[in-house]
Design a protein around this nucleic acid. Sequence first.
DNA 1: ATTAAAACTGAAAATCAATTTCAATTAGGA
DNA 2: TCCTAATTGAAATTGATTTTCAGTTTTAAT
Lengths: 145, 145
Amino acid sequence: MEEILRDFKPFIKKKGLKYTQEREQILKEIVSIKGHFDVEDLYLRFKEKNSKISKASIYRTLPLLVEGGYIQEVYRQDGHSHYEVTLTKTPHLHFICIHCREVQEITDERLNVLIKEYEEEREYKLLTYHLEIFGLCKACKGLKL
Amino acid sequence: MEEILRDFKPFIKKKGLKYTQEREQILKEIVSIKGHFDVEDLYLRFKEKNSKISKASIYRTLPLLVEGGYIQEVYRQDGHSHYEVTLTKTPHLHFICIHCREVQEITDERLNVLIKEYEEEREYKLLTYHLEIFGLCKACKGLKL
DNA sequence: ATTAAAACTGAAAATCAATTTCAATTAGGA
DNA sequence: TCCTAATTGAAATTGATTTTCAGTTTTAAT
């Protein structure tokens, strides 16, 4: 946590932006979340603690955090984006059941190796990536849709 | 093309839906598109040939085609989804430059192998998947953002 | 071939995530 | 401290997608 905030201020300054309380609060709150979250989740958390951070600020800050590599947009469900903290360098794959909407995470270092390879081959600057697998989970597979 | 349509009717019927002209036309048109498309692209194609298929029908049909494995939602850009025909079993990875918005395709059989492995391990029924890699392309990497 | 019920369609209205506007506030260098 | 540009919250706007609904079409059963 401390290390993340220590890194965040220079990141913001280097971009010529201002280090505001709102930006810091948003990052702090996000780091304290285990698992996935969306804009509504974040907004409600602030509301509960009587912090009046607006959705506009959240929407404005999330892309910054993605760009800085602090969070990733991991999948899109019910018409909006879901994020998670980039804790490890291990990539997350998300298997999404189109019937029961369950989201399962799969982690596999081999994918990470592939992505790194693509990055070097094509001389990209990788910011983030996500792999979504859609289908029917074990439980829903037998049902007729 | 013929084979796809031959397969589509039973697919629709098995779901207890009706095989309508609109659904057939939409699938036919999509199969004739090389590369990516979005709802607007499709709509304009119908408009040009004086077919009065509505956007509502397109929006209603695309999820069916995804479910049937005929098309895939491959990435999301400018706030809306982009699709492509599932021609081969070779997965498409999309590298999206967040600066110039260029989309490059990478194909790699090794990823396909990984996905199949996950499917068998967890007893999923795979419908579709997509891997999006966000970052800066070779050309934009040097620019200060 | 008729018929009837249910599904489907186009057009318009509604929804809803995300972005933009704008006046007031705040950060941070001089 | 002062000044200016960046940022904020709230509200308005945008734009993709979904829903509504009255009229139309499909399809199974007569």
